[in-house]
Amino acid sequence: MGKLEDIPKKQIFSVPEDYFDKLPAEVQSRIPATPVDTPGRPVFRYALQYALPLIVIATILFFYIRPEADATSILATVDAEDLINYLHDSPMTTEDILENVDFYTGDLEAIENEVYDLELRDLDDEQIDVELNTL
């Protein structure tokens, strides 16, 4: 017998009794149970999915990217009268203040102009002479 067609096609393998009846249940028992979605679950999931990253990003922005408030802007919120009272009550002398305060050039010029302009504008020639003589 050398030809394949001379051999009758026959199933020589067999299986234990009821094997195919039991196989679906056998397979099913090995499948992990599908998680059941409870009504509250998606809300929690979305909260984690969207809210949590937003909170993290907001925290990062708050602590690291927030613009630093400088002394000028803080002082700008303090009432001028309160500031004068504070400086008046402060043990600091005028020299201390001048040494420590970093005046802007523009501020200094403005102060100078204000002082000289006022005095020169408000006084007539005679008064100026009187003032100069009293020095």
Partner: peptide, 27 residues
């Protein structure tokens, strides 16, 4: 899903099993 999967296993189990069995011989 479970119902559909059960049908799928019942539909294809024999053809798949015999295909495999002829290759690995052992039940």
């Amino acid at each position: 899903r479970n119902f559909g999967f059960n049908i799928l296993v019942r539909t294809y189990q024999q053809r798949i099993y015999w295909h495999i069995r002829k290759m690995v011989i052992d039940h």
